[in-house]
Amino acid sequence: MRPYRIRLGRLVGKTILALAGFVAVFPLAWTALNSLKNNVDIITRVPRLVFTPTFDNIAYILGRDSVMTGLYNSVVACGCAVLIGVVLGLPAAYAVARYPNRFAGDIQFFVLSLRFLPPVAVAIPLMVIWLQIGLYDTLPALIVTYSLLTISVIMWLAIPAFQSVPKEIEEAAFVDGYGAYSVFWRIALPVAARSLIGAVAFSFVLVWNEFLIALMLSSSNAKTLPIVASELSQQGMNVPWGILNASVVLLSLPPLLFLGVLSGFLNSVFRPKKT
């Protein structure tokens, strides 16, 4: 009876997996579908799969000034913060990875510990500080605050990436007369590039998705897209659902563009050991 039971077990396992895969994407796909529906097709007791699609919701979202400002703010704030994270984080990570000193462990722990800080504990005092120096509700304030996130995350992920570059290549470059800086530029950066791009993409997704800090540090001018999207729903349930769904889709698209990069990053981090 054993083979039969094993086959049944495999069937159950496969069913559970398929179900999990379905649960992973279906809610999002349904939201995307709803963004193409008229309100009458959404507010139905029985979910409707067949309907006449409309682009009104998407057009409405893209035509709103607040959404466009939010999009602009998000792109600028996240772009600048990630850029600062790259410029400051990557060299520092390389120094920790390749020039071990007795503080290396402490530095790594310090960078990680920044992640322990509750966002509220950072946002409240910063709000008071930005208010006092007159930078509250501006993009520079948001960029500086986000840089703390991007620098620490990029450093944290880039240290192992640099460590996995074979030491021999760098040693060979030193023998060929390269200086320490050109070894970093011409050898370490290009060789580790794949993992590094993953780390940078991850930091972008992190700040793009950030909500609490943006909510506390902006009141009108510097609102990012997640804030604008969440406010659409506060106008009560009178807001056509299709529009809300469309704004969720718009907000979710940029991180999903990195799906390929990030899954490649995962693969390079967990490479099977050669035996």
Binding site: W208, N209, F211, A229, V248
Partner: peptide, 23 residues
């Protein structure tokens, strides 16, 4: 499966929250 399972975590928490609030 790996690709499918990574999708939810990439979503902004705000998006995920809305998706399920509707659901």
């Amino acid at each position: 499966y790996c690709l499918l399972f990574i999708i939810p975590v990439l979503l902004p928490r705000v998006s995920a929250a809305f998706v399920w609030k509707f659901a």
